[in-house]
């Protein structure tokens, strides 16, 4: 069970959250005019990144807010947490590990 840092409430166990899939996929404004392929890409295409993945979480059993996170899908470690509407942080701080 992951430990997830809600930007509004702090660190909470994963059980309080619902995963929201890849972040930064905006619903097209001009949906009715979109080509079939473009609409299908919006609906279904995901980066499925192996590595640093920008994703959404919702603190459903808490404040109820959506937020974004960068997580390394090869380790499940979170690298950054940021709010909806903000761009993904470019500078990735590396996690401190100890022996």
């Amino acid at each position: 069970m992951l430990l997830i840092e809600c930007p509004y409430c702090g660190e909470r166990p994963e059980l309080e959250f619902v995963y929201g899939g890849q972040a930064h996929i905006a619903r097209p404004q001009n949906a009715p005019d979109l080509s079939a392929q473009a609409w299908s890409d919006y609906l279904y295409q995901r980066d499925n990144t192996k590595g640093i993945h920008a994703e959404r979480w919702r603190h459903t059993h808490g404040c109820g807010r959506f937020f974004n996170a960068l997580r390394d899908t090869t380790t499940d470690h979170f690298i950054a947490i940021y709010k909806v509407g903000e761009a993904a942080p470019a500078a990735l701080k590396t996690r401190k590990v100890a022996l």
Binding site: V18, G20, A26, R27, R56, R58, T60, G64, R65, F66, V84, G85
Partner: peptide, 13 residues
Amino acid sequence: LAMMEDFVQTEWP
């Protein structure tokens, strides 16, 4: 409700 919240918070803030 979750779907509505998703749209309210992330698509139509």
